[in-house]
């Protein structure tokens, strides 16, 4: 083998390695990227039924109830961003930190009837935690400013005005 062909071999091997990595990445991006949507966005523009999305918002107080289908527990709850609410249907154990009035992210698909079928429900293991997307969405809709303490109770949101968010929330014992 000449020196030239050896160098060529090295270059070709590198190109194949990185090329296939790039091809695999692009291919996987086109089918596996999961977009985040707020309930109002789902209402305005429902995604196709085969598209997995992340739905985030606050769990509406008093909306959580359960059914049992063929020995499996099914949880139903409403998720809101203060403008619209989507009913989520989740078969499984809700995470330890799932609470009414707290933020949640559900991964799944939107059914044709507008309800959401979750394959996964995430509530981070930290009480003061709010998923960034949820906080961003709440801020955008003018319901809450995360700089001023904990999120208000979800039940009060639909009646809340933007002015309420301006005054700092009262400090809770564990909010600091």
């Amino acid at each position: 083998m000449t020196r030239k062909s050896r160098r060529l071999w090295l270059v070709v091997a590198c190109m194949i390695g990185l090329g296939s990595a790039a091809a695999l990445t692009l291919n996987a991006f086109s089918s596996n990227i999961v977009f985040f949507m707020a309930p109002s966005q789902v209402h305005a523009k429902p995604p196709p039924a085969d598209r997995t999305i992340r739905l985030g918002g606050m769990v509406v107080a008093g909306s959580v109830h359960r059914e049992t289908v063929k020995d499996s527990p099914v949880n139903l709850f409403d998720v809101t961003d203060g403008q619209a609410a989507v009913t989520v249907r989740y078969e499984g154990i809700l995470p330890d930190l799932f609470r009414e009035g707290q933020s949640v992210v559900a991964v799944g698909t939107v059914n044709p009837d507008g309800t959401f079928r979750a394959s996964e429900v995430l509530a981070k293991h930290d009480e003061t935690y709010m998923p960034k997307e949820v906080a961003e969405e709440l801020r955008r809709s003018g319901k809450w400013d995360p700089r001023f303490g904990k999120a208000p109770d979800a039940a009060s949101w639909n009646t809340m005005t933007a002015a309420d968010t301006k005054k700092p929330a009262t400090q809770t014992p564990d909010g600091n």
Partner: peptide
């Protein structure tokens, strides 16, 4: 990619196990 997309374009996306399975295992 997700943090850069959200920093540059304000789009919130995420990639998970399906993406990494489809890309790392063939390599």
């Amino acid at each position: 990619y997700p943090p850069f997309m959200s920093l540059l374009f304000g789009k919130t996306i995420s990639v998970g196990k399906p993406f990494f399975d489809a890309t790392t295992i063939p390599l």
